[in-house]
Design a protein around this nucleic acid. Structure first.
Length: 680
RNA sequence: GGCGAGGUAGCUCAGUUGGUUAGAGCGCAUGAUUCAUAAUCAUGAGGUCGGCAGUUCAACCCUGCCUCUCGCUACCA
């Protein structure tokens, strides 16, 4: 578990993409656990570099910039600043929060690429891609639009059709156009460099499958194993684009490093900006590298980036990649585009000075083993019945009693009862209970143990009843409160990684400034006669009103989303009658229907079209059972070019209407007509 | 369809190289208590550990099949 040879730590957090602000999903998955871990390490005098930064390259940012008539730099500046500020205000204690548009990063990423290039670690492939001759640029992904080959949507992108959701390749599009000029693009050869992941397969097997079977989380390990087992392929590391890190070699005009290649190098660049002595954090065997990420990033951080580091040769590899699952919000997936999220910068405004409440809730309910749900009701309950009632209340009781009886001075601990002794012994066990949870990335459990210490305090007070004893034996009360206050002091140390703002406040109240983890478990942290400052409440109740406001806000979002989803898509451009007349739509009857094996969506039909009996394959298996369709009359395009699907030749297409939720409904004659009737 | 992760009390989760009464917190009920932000403390109710088979003296834990959720992937004429 705890490796004694470890001298220092490099802890990184996934780089948030600078095209939007940060929400609670990011926090719960990555930043809060990483921050707890780092604060814990620092309290143990470990040498830590805590690295974060914004990921600012890639096509989506350039598209957003174009849409808003701004430069990509404008866009990333905007979001980088929002994100950076909100992390600061939230107490994510980065040693540096940098960005990939920085000069240092460009230089670092270039050199990294150059070294692999010089050492012949890449393979080169040439293929044909669309090219806009006027603007002299290759059209990657979203820079090309055209008609979707299967839903007919005219504004499909080169990587995906937003109408039917299919992922496409640019060459699939019908009537492709450049999104930049509107011109018809030409095919032109382009050269790209690939990282041959396949060559590293044996090494990855040894390193991950054999080497990290027991210390990586099951979700991380399983995901890696799945990738490796299914066979790795060379992956392009360059792109034809003008926003990003220029490919630093001749013959690479207009090419940049692909974002996934440059982004993780950002961890290294940021460390360079942090300290000239950066190499010890990345190249020294006695440094432990830990990547905190969400589950969407597992492949990059466990397979691709390590392969890059391995290929480069001089870097250490991650010791662990604690990846969380996803956090849902009120039962639905968090979605930036649907505005279904609790945004950090808004939370900070609406709940001022309540950073720790959110940190607490997100940790107590962290998606460590499976997706979890964040609800405002739970947020309120955890605040009111855990933070306020258990932790805040215990501290308040101890401090108020001390003020009342001893004017805020720590009383003498006199003769101990057996109960005192067992309580003191138990206090001593908490540092190890919490640290062994944190060392193994079990943050939820660590926090639970912290609360158990506060529970122990409450129980101690309830059992010893100092407010009663005071009347008969004030000496005894001195001992009771001394012990209670030692618990308070211990809480302030042990709670600091989780609740830094509140523990800071607590330390001021008890006039105490130690956060050294090694001092925790000590039973004389507060010495006799030590003067406490005036107590105040650590946490406040959150009332129903505040929760209702948040829930209403989400309801509004939901309404707005339903409205916009219900809106019909705008009509496509007019066509000539001749274009319509080319389509031959007939009525037909389903004679046979069966599921295509090994597919989720495909049904295979035999249809009597009046003209003939033919096989048609259709992707509706999610909505209809084959047996209930036999005998049903449908509309079918009979002169669509045949297409092989899963080895079955489909001759025609059944007409379906798609509802807002994606459900497909037959478009068919309302009463039976003879098969082969023309639809016109 | 393939692969991965998960399915344990109303909710959120622990758990065991398989061992005899399955745990915690929150919520709920009852009682105690008043120092404390109506907070606390005790006690209790509540679970056929997703389903069915199998291996075993013994399975929540191992094996097989099935089922549901999430993710990746294939697929949607």
């Amino acid at each position: 578990m705890e490796n004694k040879d470890i001298k220092r730590y490099t802890v990184t957090t996934a780089l948030p993409y600078a095209n939007g602000p940060v929400h609670i999903g990011h926090l719960a998955g990555v930043y809060v656990p990483a921050d707890i871990y780092v604060r814990y390490l620092r309290a143990n005098h470990r040498d830590v570099a805590f690295i974060g930064g914004s990921d600012e390259h890639g096509v989506p940012i350039t598209i957003k910039a174009r849409k808003e008539g701004l430069s990509p730099q404008n866009i990333v500046d905007r979001y980088h600043n929002i994100i950076k500020k909100s992390f600061e205000d939230f107490g994510i204690s980065f040693d540096i929060y940098s960005r990939t548009s920085s000069e240092t990063h460009h230089k670092t990423a270039s050199e990294f690429f150059k070294k692999l290039y010089d050492e012949d670690k890449f393979i080169v492939k040439t293929n044909e891609q669309y090219y806009d001759a006027d603007n002299k640029m290759f059209l990657a992904d979203r820079y090309i639009t055209g008609t979707c080959p299967h839903c007919g949507f005219e504004k499909a992108y080169g990587d995906q059709c937003e109408s039917c959701g299919t992922s496409l390749s640019a060459t699939d599009l019908i009537n492709p156009k450049s999104a930049v000029s509107g011109n018809v693009p030409v095919m032109k050869e382009t050269k790209h460099w690939y990282l041959p992941l396949d060559k590293y397969e044996p090494w990855l097997k040894e390193w991950i499958i054999d080497g990290h079977k027991n210390d990586w989380r099951p979700n991380v390990y399983g995901q890696c194993k799945s990738w490796i087992d299914s066979g790795l392929h060379p992956r392009a590391v360059t792109r034809d684009l003008d926003w990003g890190v220029k490919v630093p070699i001749e013959d690479a005009e207009g090419k940049v490093l692909y974002v996934w290649f440059d982004a993780p190098i950002g961890y290294i660049s940021a460390t360079k900006e942090l300290t000239p002595d950066w190499e010890k954090y990345w190249k020294s065997k006695d440094t432990k590298l830990v990547h905190f990420i969400g589950k969407d990033n597992i492949v990059f951080h466990c397979i691709i980036f390590p392969t890059m580091l391995k290929a480069e040769g001089s870097y250490i590899l991650p010791d662990n990649v604690p990846s969380n699952e996803f956090l849902n919000l009120e039962g639905d997936k968090i979605s930036t585009s649907r505005n279904w999220a609790v945004w950090l910068h808004e939370y900070l405004e609406e709940f001022p000075d309540k950073q720790d409440v959110l940190r607490y809730v997100l940790t107590a309910n962290a998606p460590e083993t499976k997706d979890n749900d964040f609800t405002w009701k739970d947020f309120q309950t955890r605040n009111n019945s855990e933070l306020v009632a258990i932790l805040g209340n215990f501290v308040n009781r101890a401090l108020v009693l001390t003020k009342k009886y001893f004017d805020g001075h720590i009383p003498l601990r006199g003769e101990l009862t057996d109960f005192d002794k067992t309580t003191l012994e138990e206090i001593k066990t908490f540092p190890l209970r919490i640290s062994s949870a944190l060392e193994t990335y079990h943050f939820r459990e660590g926090l639970r143990e912290l609360m158990n210490l506060a529970r122990l305090g409450n129980k101690y007070l309830a059992d010893t009843e100092p407010w009663k004893v005071w009347k008969t034996d004030p000496k005894r009360v001195e001992t009771i409160l001394n012990i209670s206050l030692q618990i308070v002091a211990n809480l302030s140390i042990l709670g600091n990684p989780f609740l830094p703002f509140s523990m800071d406040k607590l330390r001021k109240m008890i006039n105490f400034d130690i956060i050294d983890w090694n001092k925790s478990g000590d039973l004389d942290l507060l010495e006799e006669g030590h003067k406490l400052n005036k107590p105040s409440l650590l946490f406040d109740q959150i009332d129903d009103k505040a929760i209702e406001n948040q829930i209403n806000k989400l309801m509004e979002t939901k309404k707005a989303n339903i409205l916009s989803e219900a809106k019909a898509k705008p009509a496509k451009p007019n066509i000539e009658f001749d274009d319509f007349a080319k389509m031959d739509i007939r009525t037909g009857t389903i004679l046979e229907a069966e599921k295509v094996t090994k597919t989720k969506k495909l049904l295979k039909f035999l249809i009597d079209t009046g003209i003939d009996k033919r096989t048609v394959v259709s992707g509706i298996a999610e909505y209809y059972k084959p047996e209930e369709l036999i005998g049903k009359q449908v509309s079918i395009i009979v002169n669509l070019a045949p297409k092989k699907l899963r080895g079955i030749e489909s001759r025609g297409m059944i007409l379906m209407a798609e509802d807002a939720d994606g459900k497909l409904v037959f478009v068919a004659p309302v009463s039976d007509v003879k098969n082969g009737s023309e639809v016109k």
